[in-house]
Amino acid sequence: MEKQLVTIYFDGSPLSCDPSKSILDNLLDNNVKATFSCKKGTCLTCVLRTSHDVPKKSQDALKPALIEQGYFLSCQTMPIEGMEILPSEQNDLFIKTTVKEIKQLSGHVAQIFLTPSENFNYRPGQFLNIKNPDGEVRSYSIASTKVQANDTLEIHVKKHQFGKVSNWLGDEVKINDEVEISGPNGDCFYINDQPEQPLLLIGTGTGLAPLLGIMRQALSQNHTGDIKLYHGAVEDDGLYLTDELKKLSDKYSNVEIHLGTLKQSDNKDIVCGSINDIALANHAELKGWKIYLCGDPQMVQTTKQKAFLSGANLADIFSDPFEMKTPVTLD
């Protein structure tokens, strides 16, 4: 049987849509150039505008100012007959920043410092989106705090084989270049409601960036409870900024740093194993803890469930899964 199609209007042009697929997927099927990254409602790069009512989950993660303007997540919304949709106004979303400094760290990670051209209010641990000159957009977590870095934003970028934006940032961008960012987004950040509450921070790869932002923020707000940070990577060189982490644990008696790698390391300070397993083995009872999980989505998901079963309240578990862009398949 033929599928019943619906017609929506994108920027005035009619498009035939499969109502069982998201608006984003329908646009891509119709060869409309649409910006997107994760397709899971996390990265918020696929926003479009409409004056039609959309389901709650299409707007849940958006800021009130954007909801007010009719923005919604096209990956989380199904097309409805007659719906009129407009592209996002890039000026609503993106602001200019200038590259202030780039430091190449181990493990193909670059630490990049950006100075925004206008006021950019964020909470450390939230993420911003960066657009490369081809219009590709990806998300990066913010490691800096206003206290420690004034208005400069610090992000960690890992170059990898398919990283269209990360490789541009890592290889081509130079000091004083202009980089467009939008955001901030996300709800994985420090909340200063119980300064004596112990914090467990677990991250893989550049999942260290949001955790570093959260830890710096907690320390700047005189967090007195224990802060246990666990950073994991595949092998030694994926662990970066280790000196800076050590300085923090030397300076603050409540800070403890644990490093782990999947491949056995020669360094006796680095434990062999998955960092989430190492952390959970050290903390079997998590009642009353606040927990932050950042990085590999599979690690985040399984650790969230285990931490909950070990007694943590679900409302005290904050997570930032680094969803990768779904590779384009030709079918």
Binding site: Q301, K304, Q305, F308, L309, G311, N313, L314
Partner: peptide, 24 residues
């Protein structure tokens, strides 16, 4: 709700009906 949810997730005879990618 957290107490109840923890109990059903810990019960291997029924946890398969409650396991999900979106715990919230």
């Amino acid at each position: 709700v957290d107490i109840f949810y923890r109990k059903v997730l810990s019960d291997s005879s029924i946890s398969q009906f409650f396991e999900t990618t979106d715990m919230d």
